[in-house]
Nucleic acid binder design. Structure first.
Length: 200
DNA sequence: TCTATGATCCCCT
DNA sequence: GGGGATCATAGAT
């Protein structure tokens, strides 16, 4: 399987990147323990001018990792419980990011079950960003990790995603962002049972 | 220092 | 379909 090159993440259209990440494969291999899954739901966060983005308040200790060149991980804690995994995009100085909201498990399902404390692998295993973070073993200490290395990367196995199967909607859980909450920045594979929220 | 709050999920009814 | 878990961050004191 090919890895997506750094140039994929350095482009300036974060919304396009979020859309193109559908069907790609997220792989982590901490200490040689491999888990992977096909990305079926993403959200774009478009920098300081986007009120739903953490970067809307400018550069802080938490958000500074987004100001680096793309192709690295932005991992943060939400609601005190959930490790959320984001992909930083665009070039140095522009804090764009794509949140991975849901994947379909591929490799290492037994490891994911162990990490999430589940008994059986059903469609809820990696449905929702908090569970993706947990199943793949992400932690805020992995903030800034390269996504083009051997421990963590985004793969392309040529899996085709039909344009007609790609659905668009407003982002989830960002009502505080006012009008920006209405932007069509969420992309998902229509009808896929691993997609969180509305999937029709 | 102190306090409010969230890019969520699970369990309960 | 409603509320509690649980804590780092940011902005206020």
């Amino acid at each position: 399987m090919k890895k997506l090159p750094l140039s994929f993440f350095l482009r300036d259209d974060v919304v396009l990147i979020a859309r193109e990440l559908l069907g790609k494969v997220l792989v982590t291999a901490w200490n040689g323990i491999v888990t992977s899954g096909r990305i079926v739901e993403t959200e774009a966060y478009a920098g300081e001018s986007d009120n739903a983005s953490h970067a809307s308040r400018g550069k802080t200790k938490r958000t500074e990792v987004m100001y680096n060149d793309g192709g690295i991980a932005y991992v943060y804690l939400c609601y005190g419980i959930h490790q959320m995994f984001n992909i930083v995009t665009n070039v140095k100085g522009i804090p764009h990011a794509v949140l991975i909201r849901a994947v379909v498990p591929m490799q290492g399902i037994d490891v994911m079950l162990e990490r999430t404390g589940k008994k059986v692998a059903d469609a809820t295993l990696t449905r929702g960003p908090g569970k993706v973070g947990k199943a793949f073993g992400f932690h805020t200490s992995q903030c800034g990790q390269m996504l083009t290395g051997n421990e963590t990367y985004i793969g392309d196995d040529g899996f085709p995603v039909d344009e007609n199967d790609i659905a668009v909607s407003s982002r989830i859980g960002v009502a505080y962002a006012g009008d920006h909450a209405l932007w069509d920045y969420r992309f998902y594979v229509r009808g896929n049972s691993s997609v969180s929220g509305s999937r029709s």
